[in-house]
Amino acid sequence: MKNAEKYWAENLKYLTILLSIWFLVSFVFGILLVDQLNTIKIGGFKLGFWFAQQGAIYVFVILIFVYVKLMNRLDKKYSLDS
């Protein structure tokens, strides 16, 4: 495989993992399983409600910065950084 193709394959792997987490915290925790998670309480928050109005947003921010880190490392590995 050419370098560019290997780079792309690794990139797609990262995307799959990060987007699965993106889907999990918002659509699964915040919507689909919200009633089940709401039975757990942390401080004044029902957990499902917290994911929908707070937690998902925090995770989104972290996901992008993790992606930045991973991709910068990947760019270096294949010497594709500009």
């Binding site: 409600f49 929908a52 947003i57 996901l63």
Partner: peptide, 12 residues
Amino acid sequence: SVYLMGWTGGYV
């Protein structure tokens, strides 16, 4: 919550 998640999750 649709607005909170919807208008931030798009950035990911």
